[in-house]
Amino acid sequence: MITMKDIIREGHPTLRQAAEEVAMPPSEEDKEILKSLLEYIKNSQDPQISQQYGLRGGVGLAAPQINVPKRMIAVHTKDTNGDTYSYALFNPKIASHSVEKAYLTSGEGCLSVDRAVPGFVPRYARITVKAFDIEGKPVKLRLKGFPAIVFQHEIDHLNGIMFYDYIDEKDPFKEPEGATPIER
C-alpha cells in the first residue's frame, strides 16, 4: 500500500523528467504499481482509511510521484453530474483537445506539493485521451470539466510539468481569456 511517505515532493528530480513508455502487454510488476496508484487515491477519499494511515486526499496520482519514472496514472473522481471517473492507465496521451480553455476557480493542488500555490491554471476545456487499461487493452476517453482538468494535471506529471508552471507569476488570478471557470 502506498502511503504519504512514498510520495516524493517538489524539488525531487524525478518530478521534472519525462517518464518512460510502459511496454505492452504490461508486466505483472507494472500492473501492481498501477493498481497501487488507484488504491491510494480511493483510500485517500475514504475518511476512515485516510485518517488511519494519514493519507492526504487526492483525485489523481502519477507513477513519477512515487519515484517510478513510467507513464502510468490513476484517477478517481466525480463530475458535476455525480458520474464517477475511475481509471488506472498506461501510456495516456492527449489525442485531441478543444480550443476553449477552462480553469478551477479554487486553483489546483498536488500531493507532491506541500504548500498552497494560489493562482489560476489554464487547461483545455475538453480532451480526448488515448491509453491502455490495466490489462493492456486500448482505451479512448472523451473528458470535459473537472475530470478533463484532473487528467491533464496527471499527464503533465509524465512530462515533468508541475501545475504551477502555468500560473501567471505577475498576475496569478488573471482569468485565462475566454476560459470557463469551474467551481470545485
Rank of each mutant, 00 (worst) to 15 (best):
M1G: 09
T3V: 12
M4F: 07
K5T: 07
D6A: 10
I8Q: 02
G11D: 13
Q17I: 14
E20T: 14
P25Y: 06
S27A: 10
E29M: 14
L34H: 01
K35G: 08
L37N: 01
I41N: 00
P47C: 01
P47T: 12
P47L: 02
Q48A: 10
S50P: 07
Y53C: 04
R56K: 15
G58S: 03
G60S: 04
G60A: 08
G60K: 00
A62D: 02
A63W: 03
P64E: 03
Q65V: 12
I66Y: 00
K70E: 01
K70G: 04
R71H: 13
R71C: 09
R71N: 10
R71Y: 07
M72K: 05
I73F: 00
I73V: 08
V75Y: 02
T77L: 06
K78I: 02
K78R: 09
D79L: 01
D79S: 03
N81L: 01
G82F: 09
D83E: 12
Y85D: 04
Y87R: 03
L89E: 05
N91H: 10
K93N: 11
K93Q: 11
S96H: 00
K101L: 14
K101I: 10
Y103F: 14
S106Q: 15
E108I: 10
G109F: 03
G109E: 07
S112Q: 12
S112I: 06
S112N: 15
V113H: 01
D114K: 14
R115D: 09
V117E: 05
P118T: 15
P118D: 15
G119W: 07
G119A: 05
F120E: 07
F120C: 06
V121N: 05
R123H: 02
A125G: 05
R126G: 04
I127F: 02
V129M: 01
K130S: 11
F132R: 00
D133L: 04
G136F: 08
P138I: 14
V139T: 00
K140T: 15
K140C: 11
L141D: 11
L143K: 05
L143D: 01
I149C: 00
F151P: 03
H153T: 12
H153I: 14
H153F: 06
H157K: 08
L158I: 12
L158C: 08
N159W: 03
I167P: 04
K170E: 15
D171Y: 06
D171T: 12
D171K: 13
P172D: 05
K174T: 09
P176Q: 06
E177M: 09
G178D: 13
T180L: 01
P181G: 08
I182R: 01
E183V: 15
E183Y: 13
